[in-house]
Design a protein around this nucleic acid. Structure first.
Lengths: 229, 229
DNA sequence: TAGATTGTTAATCGATTAACAATC
DNA sequence: TAGATTGTTAATCGATTAACAATC
């Protein structure tokens, strides 16, 4: 709409880079934990599992936080990346669908330690409501609106069966949630301005299966010296 | 090594396409379940959440399975994609690390219905070994080699804490597993020829947080009509 | 035949990478 | 100053998309 300041304008970070920033953050935390104060782009790239040119290019979108001839101060860079991602602040999150996966998510310590706070667990089934999971009492799905308003929740997690996913997403969007992490094996449609990310356990396995199959076929082709269809 | 047949040579499928094939497969299954026998690329693209040009381009790498002016036979296309991915066959899988997430994975019905069979659950902790999870008794991690040999396992799933992930991966690789799905929040290094895919719950949330933060900043900038740093 | 829709082309866009000037 | 390492450039590579000829 309006003209942004030059500071904002400089901040057009490519999606591929955004997706790697949390990986760098984790690698820096690991380095810090092992007592390392300074690292080169080569060191950090190795820890993060990328090549160093890509790492430097990625970091260049954030600013110039290294020192030529020296490297990066681990704590300083870690703070800058955390600030850029937004995990220096606290993000209230609701999880809907407390089955096996919902349980695992509610118990996952990695959320809390990275700026995410699970403020409520919701389920539509009466048999689940009232149970205590990870020290939080499961509430009825109907309480969604109340909870979102009370805690100013911006991020919702869907861990329901596939059939329920679209309904849950619709309700979340109607109430003002603008970021959704979807674990249900279903495509959910949302309006412009709402972000959905999808984690699909079986899709990842299928991608592996594809490559595994090709390895097997390659070996077979090499063995028979021809390559059958 | 040796020259491949023309059939094989035609099969250089881009990574981005491979990652979408399971999504198309799922969408086709949903269409079939609702009684639809034929669909256009537009229909399928909508169901899969992509645009139709991309879908047709993707399918063109597999072959020519549609009919101009008509569309695709749902069952036929579904079979062709399943065959291409390799999920018409049965893939034995082991899961290592039976905490909350391991439980959820062991219970996940989406694996079984897509060609994956969990042949063993393993854990290093004596307190977990012997428990029955999803009808399978948890065995000691030491049994890995025996199990992999017996069932000819090619795919391993790591659901351990971060510290154990590299050790587990090393053992898997040493025993001949060539595809690993890693849920542990750690980068694991593997030799050439071994595929690792990583699912990281908190990284997905962090990516959402980044975008959420920008939305909040954008709204703020619009409100103040300037765009503060 | 006329209408519909695929499969493919070609243009565009974005991501990766090697190389190196800048500079600590 | 000499060595090291960043930040950036530019070339390459891969993915996306619109448009349309082929063809059912």
């Amino acid at each position: 709409m309006t003209t942004r300041s030059s500071t904002d304008a400089a901040r057009v970070i490519p999606e591929a880079t955004v997706a790697r920033l949390p990986v760098y953050l984790r690698a820096l935390t690991a380095l810090a934990d092992s007592g390392i104060r300074t690292c080169s782009s080569e060191d950090l790239a190795t820890a993060a599992g990328v090549n160093s040119a890509k790492l430097r290019k990625d970091l260049s979108y954030l600013g110039s936080y290294g020192t030529r001839g020296v490297g990066y101060d681990v704590d300083y860079l870690r703070y800058q990346i955390a600030r850029e991602i937004g995990v220096t602040q606290d993000w209230p999150v609701v999880i809907v669908g407390i089955g096996n996966l919902g349980h695992a998510l509610a118990n996952y310590s990695g959320f809390r330690s990275r700026g995410f706070r699970v403020v409520a667990l919701l389920d539509a089934a009466e048999s689940v409501v009232g149970q205590s999971v990870a020290g939080v009492v499961v509430r009825p799905f109907d309480h969604l609106e109340e909870i979102v308003r009370e805690h100013d929740v911006a991020i919702g997690v869907i861990a329901t069966p596939a059939v329920a996913a679209q309904d849950v997403a619709d309700r979340m969007v109607a109430i003002g949630i603008t970021s959704i992490l979807n674990f249900a094996p279903a495509v959910v449609a949302v309006p412009e301005g709402v972000d959905v990310r999808k984690v699909d356990l079986s899709i990842e396995l299928q991608i592996l299966a594809y490559h595994e199959q090709r390895k097997a076929n390659g070996a077979e082709a090499a063995a028979t010296d021809g390559g059958a269809a």
